[in-house]
């Protein structure tokens, strides 16, 4: 119906001079759309000194990479990004544009939507092509994950959406894949920003940001105090995970807001979500419905979180946490001893 050969695009995310892993997840999404549409899959790479990295996107599934490499793009400045994306979409007229629902994607995509007058769907967890119309079906949780809404875009293309980080695994890297690298030199007028980047201070907390974490160790009011949260960090360190928290624990000042899981915090999609001393308010549960496996520890046998958990442990959160840490450490040291032999 919509029988064009217009491309599917993904917006690569650049940190410094490297390509952030979510860019590869986006290509896994993109392949699932480009293949049934029989159109090329292209990635948009905008940054400073990033051109040498373009092959990584080909290896991750892209057929083409449009490269805009200019010192002007050293920092992510939203006005400049919107300008370049408008230029690229006007010039090449893609059918679909997908970005990651990171702070960048969630800033620049709504701006682009307003700039070019195209629809935008936030935070999708499923994408597919309608076999009849050939249009993009964007599925996203609504009303706190209680409803899944299928959304279509009408009017002018591209059909645009952001997808949740970690909701799809990247394809296996294939260095033998061949693709086309297209260097784009934007007009000088598009370079430069009204904004000024003044510096970045990394967070000192353990692990990845919660939205990117594969394992999340969360605590709630049942952790009783800020000091006990250190135990969660210890467990997170042991398992290679990240500490999360309920709204209550954040409101009590035990953990920073960046760790808050739920409707007024972040929605997360880890492989394992462990909840210690979290009773499971609706808002919290809404934020963890995308978790693959949920383990909950709570003293109250009626805690609502037990209704959504794959493993529910009734008991004292601190006692179980201590015993679990001990058990993992013991196993670890035994293994090390074995290896040493």
């Amino acid at each position: 119906m919509n029988g064009t050969n217009k491309e599917v695009w993904t917006l690569a995310e650049v940190r410094g001079k490297t390509i952030h892993p979510v860019s590869k997840e986006l290509l896994a999404w993109g392949r699932e759309l480009a293949d049934p549409m029989r159109v090329p899959l292209a990635s948009i790479l905008v940054g400073s000194g990033v051109a040498p990295r373009a092959e990584e996107l080909i290896a991750a599934g892209a057929d083409k990479v449009y490269i805009v490499d200019d010192p002007s793009f050293e920092n992510f400045l939203c006005d400049e990004q919107v300008g370049i994306l408008e230029y690229l979409t006007d010039k090449y007229n893609p059918s679909i544009l997908i970005a990651s629902a990171t702070t960048r994607g969630r800033t620049v995509m709504p701006m682009l939507s307003a700039r070019i007058g195209c629809g935008l769907t936030a935070d999708c967890t499923e994408l597919s092509i309608d076999p009849v119309s050939g249009r993009l079906i964007q599925t996203r949780p609504a009303i706190g994950g209680n409803v899944m809404a299928d959304i279509k875009t009408r009017g002018r293309d591209p059909q645009m959406c952001t997808v949740r980080p970690k909701s799809k695994r990247p394809l296996d890297t294939d260095r033998s894949r061949k693709g086309e690298l297209i260097k784009v030199s934007p007009p000088q007028s598009l370079l430069g920003s009204a904004l000024k980047f003044l510096g970045f201070t990394p967070e000192t907390s353990v692990g990845l940001p919660i939205q990117e974490a594969e394992i999340i160790i969360s605590g709630g009011k049942g952790m009783k105090n800020a000091k006990n949260f250190a135990k969660l960090e210890e467990l997170a360190r042991l398992l290679g995970g990240t500490v999360g928290a309920s709204r209550m624990a954040v409101d009590l000042g035990w953990v920073p807001y960046s760790a808050q899981v739920g409707l007024s915090g972040k929605s997360v999609t880890p492989r394992i979500y462990m909840a210690f001393g979290i009773s499971g308010a609706v808002q919290h549960i809404a934020g963890i419905s995308g978790a693959e496996t949920i383990i909950a520890v709570n003293h109250d046998p009626e805690a609502p979180i037990f209704r959504v958990a794959d493993l529910s442990i009734q008991g004292d959160a601190m006692e179980i946490l201590d015993a679990l840490i001990d058990s993992l450490k013991k196993e670890q040291s035994e293994r090390w001893t074995l290896t040493a032999d």
Binding site: Q138, M148, L311
Partner: peptide
């Protein structure tokens, strides 16, 4: 509006999980 909701489904939020009561003891829970 450029986006339209074309279909709505209600995913099952509750999961049939395994439950271990406190009577089972910390060791079994861990």
């Amino acid at each position: 509006s450029a986006t339209l909701v074309v279909n709505v489904t209600y995913p099952q939020m509750t999961r049939e999980g395994r439950k271990i009561l406190s009577s089972a003891g910390t060791k079994d829970a861990v």
